[in-house]
Design a protein around this nucleic acid. Structure first.
Lengths: 168, 168
DNA sequence: TGGTAATGTCAACAAGGCTGACGTATTCTG
DNA sequence: CAGAATACGTCAGCCTTGTTGACATTACCA
């Protein structure tokens, strides 16, 4: 099928191969967001709410500024989303004890419930994809994605995942 | 968290592993779109224009309906983008010869130039990621992404890529 | 000829980005 | 201690890109 026989090992860098990767990213990202999007639509929320819920759940007590850096949006944009989540009782914003200028964000029970519903749906798809592709593929998958990030995003990604267990 | 120490070949299906994949997708997609976004912003276009240019370039002479299915948006939404591209002389819309209701879309020289600039930028990043991760990883990368797509997206993806050369 | 399909377009709306400006605590620093 | 800097919130306005709904035109087809 391919000829790794000769000076072959660079075949994966052809434009065709790269374009396959580009189109795969495009179509896969749609699948990646499809299931949570359905749940969010029912509740009257959008992807931005999902992202906020995800990272607050991931780092309970995180500050607004931290979240801003992780999400890469303006404070005005985040604030709009955060305000509705707080009003709806999914997120609690607590004045910092050490530094009273800071607001520490945590999920309420209800917020955790929605976050769970969303991430269960997303994990289910991811699990199916992992299962279909196999453990070897998963390592490759994450290696390419990690290499595709901007340097500061990669730093954040590693920071978030470094505390996790074995298995890369 | 869990100790599948025994049947550990399923370690890659733990929630932690799945979450890593989810966060990797999130951060990587940002990198994936960052470079074209910069070019587009200069020209006063957005991602929607990029997507249209990409798939018209990919399938010259494609119809509006085809493009609609590929992009998964409403015709009103696509039309707005298409209209500006046509007005700016990047895309030509030709009435079908066989079926005069259809419009066949092709890029002009100028359209091709912009598409090239965009896809060069995107390919450069993809190339760097591929190179950093290696050929094995690339196969895994695409395997997982493909498994993550909705069935009809996967069909379209395969249709687009089936005509390409060797190397999976 | 009537039904259906492909396309374009108008209007209205919403989410979620953005910039700019301003206000208010609070903390840090010279 | 005064002033600068930081963290946050908010108002106003703008843009892109998605949505629905309605309607017109043209053309194919049974």
């Amino acid at each position: 099928m391919d000829d790794r026989a000769g000076g072959e090992s660079l075949l994966f860098l052809t434009d065709d191969q790269l374009r396959k990767g580009i189109e795969a990213m495009f179509f896969a990202y749609r699948g990646f967001t499809a299931d949570p999007d359905r749940i969010l639509a029912e509740k009257g929320y959008g992807r931005a709410h999902h992202r906020a819920l995800h990272f607050i759940n991931r780092s309970p007590g995180t500050t607004v500024n931290n979240l801003l850096n992780t999400l890469g949006v303006t404070k005005q944009s985040l604030n709009r989303v955060l305000r509705s989540l707080i009003e709806d009782g999914l997120v609690v914003s607590a004045i910092g004890t050490r530094d009273k200028r800071e607001r520490h964000l945590t999920l309420t029970e209800e917020g955790r419930a929605l976050e769970q519903a969303l991430s269960n749906a997303q994990r289910a798809r991811m699990r199916a994809a992992y299962k279909a592709a196999g453990p070897e593929a998963v390592l490759g998958f994450r290696a390419v994605l990690e290499a595709m990030m901007d340097a500061d995003m990669r730093r954040q990604y590693r920071k978030l995942t470094e505390t996790l267990g074995p298995g890369v």
